[in-house]
Design a protein around this nucleic acid. Sequence first.
DNA 1: ATAATTTGCGTAAGTTTACTACAATATTAG
DNA 2: CTAATATTGTAGTAAACTTACGCAAATTAT
Lengths: 285, 285
Amino acid sequence: MHSQNLINVITDALPSLNKSETKVARVILSDPDAATQSSIATLAKKAQVSEPSVNRFCKRFNAAGFPDFKLKLAKSLASGIRFVNRNVDPDDDVTSYTPKIIDSTINTLAMVRDKISHARVNLVVDKLIQAKRIYFFGLGASGSVARDAENKFFRFNLPVSSHDDVLMQRMLASTGGTGDVFFVISHTGRTKEVVEVAEIARGNGSTVIGLTAADSPLADMCTVTLDVDVPENTDEYMPMASRIVHLVILDVLATGVTLRRGPDFLPHLEKIKNSLKPTRYRAES
Amino acid sequence: MHSQNLINVITDALPSLNKSETKVARVILSDPDAATQSSIATLAKKAQVSEPSVNRFCKRFNAAGFPDFKLKLAKSLASGIRFVNRNVDPDDDVTSYTPKIIDSTINTLAMVRDKISHARVNLVVDKLIQAKRIYFFGLGASGSVARDAENKFFRFNLPVSSHDDVLMQRMLASTGGTGDVFFVISHTGRTKEVVEVAEIARGNGSTVIGLTAADSPLADMCTVTLDVDVPENTDEYMPMASRIVHLVILDVLATGVTLRRGPDFLPHLEKIKNSLKPTRYRAES
DNA sequence: ATAATTTGCGTAAGTTTACTACAATATTAG
DNA sequence: CTAATATTGTAGTAAACTTACGCAAATTAT
């Protein structure tokens, strides 16, 4: 539960405030940053009111007192500046669109972090551990996510593959059975082909895991769904944040599997890492 | 210019602190949120040190005093980074490793946001705009990044392709020339095959853009390098953060290209988006 | 219109909190 | 082992914050 930005709250409450409270609000809003650094006395003087008035003002906005209020204000400022204007404007230049895009990705990740169901993650790790075979399916942008997943999970010494060909997916889904895990990745969860494939796999007793939007047709079809609600506002014309979120969730799952495998498994990962050494130029140092 | 996160600063400084300062740091890092709400006395007691020690601790980190320190700490917390101990412990369970991994990704992105050279980004956008053809090259995990880039850039109505086959890359590199852009993605920048391919392309007068580690052999080979220094501590056994960073940077570049193309270009993107509609189940609402 | 009641605001006193100067202790180097 | 330096704590002081109380203004009822 994210608390609403304090500055907005104060602005909204402005009409319902009485005289001295309005004075205090004006001063704070005119320079919130300065407010966080001044003492109650300085602020009272600036607003031409008494110190207790400032204190009462703070309490009105659900703060324990003045210091607590300053703290909350500071937090609002820190998060506010970054998150307010997420959208890229047509006349932005590099220096503004670059941080905007990165910040919006960060923001989305922070949201997922707070909302993701740990129980579900755990359950999916269970299923992946128990799998005899894992297929990662995805189309379009999710195709490369699937491929990345393959690259990650083959390290667990399991038969893993990724597919972005619908016909291939259909065929594999229809020949699968108990012990097979179909890991279906889709941003919208509404692509017909993908939903159908999930249905076929499910019908044959395979486990179907969905990394997709909640309450989507695909989600309904899956044994377990890791649902991700990514606000669409950033993905104006191409999937951006959702892709990243999917990849990070796959990182989480891979970590989960590694931890379950226990320390005996680490040498195996080490071996894979070392296998690449001869392909590289040595680091000078 | 974004200021570095206080929590990270403290974590980094940890080894260089003396006894009582370390105690204070431990208490703060173990529960930063609680720290922002406690008085200097409470904190001193928790850390088993005297109040002035806490005060000195604050000053060491460029705060005017304890209250100012709390303010800065609060701001750091607000920016979305919570877990300090970024590394996953072998005995972590879902509820701890999930946020840890996400936070470490967030952290890395925040670092990139602050460090990335806008001039370079701009330059790369220039090159991409001018390109007659774009090839995205990557191996292993970077292979799927390259593919994702293809999926993004084909929308600009340019001949774009991605390749993760070394022989294919070699052949294409040797047949390229002026006007061709080879966009080479590599986490380490030290994979011999990749560096050689870059060399070949460069020799033929093509533009070679590197999305890779600074000061690496690959970086030396490129016309322009977007260098990304991702701390390795998270990528214990598989590339994690670097991949994400590469993708986000490609998002930034795609945005840059879109903006340069101007508003006349938006209908084209819209058309691509709409082309997918018939493949989807309609949203019930 | 005036009395009663509520609401708003400030004064002053009390309490907590934070800072400074200095002293004691520990640590290191010679 | 002693001197120098760095580190930590004690005590006092200043400041910042809160509370209690009371007056004044505004509102409402008579």
